[in-house]
Amino acid sequence: MRTAIVAFAKNTYKEGVRDRIFLMVGVFGVIAVISSFIIGPLSLGEQVRITQDVGLAAISILCFAVAVLIGTGIVYREIERRTIYTIVAKPVRGWHFILGKFLGLNAIVGLLVVFMAALLLGVNAVVTRTFEPEILVAVLLTWFELLLLTSLSILMSTICSPILGAILTFLFYFIGHASADLKELATRFGSPMIKAVATIIYYALPNLEYLNVRSKVIHDIPVSLSYIGFAASYALLYTIAFLMVAVIFISRKEYK
């Protein structure tokens, strides 16, 4: 059982890092973090904030891109290319497969997070001449958000094509970050109908802004440990739920 999950995870990881997407995003990440260093001086007196802001946003967005681009194809392609045929006949269960895929995908995403975070710390140290590990609090919660988003991508890949899955996951990401604003906007200007829809969306979809403490970190506002605990459990709960639904879908599939 354990070896099967490890085998799936290792295989997913290998496939990911041998994928061109990974290399491209990695290069892009380096460019983004370093360019924040170059743009900084142009914004008089705000250099430090700009560097941190651009760097943290780059980690969040680029890792999200990798999660979606690889994740939404992760199960779908196995079915489409029939590589899953030999797997179904083996003594493995649906949850071994999904959990292995999840761990493998997160190994890829995690590698990118660690790499970019280290780069950001380095650049930040050059700009401020001090070492500021507080930045890592924002990175940590971004990483929890990525757990949630990878599990959602994997769920999408068990039910729809990669393109549709990517669109839906992106919408989820966008609404998840803007739902409070959307609700605010709707209650102020919308008709009762729009208000109702906005409220439903607000409560039905997870509020991803809970996992965004970037501006607090940049403005040196402390983030309490209990808040980190709350936000992390919030993300983990959704992650587990998405993975469980994915397992249900994959276990009921027939391969015609």
Binding site: N11, K14, E15, D19, R81, R82, T83, Y85, T86, A89
Partner: peptide, 12 residues
């Protein structure tokens, strides 16, 4: 089990 027209992971 050997499936008909087998296909395997291309990256391995």
């Amino acid at each position: 089990f050997l499936p008909e027209h087998p296909y395997f992971y291309q990256h391995l």
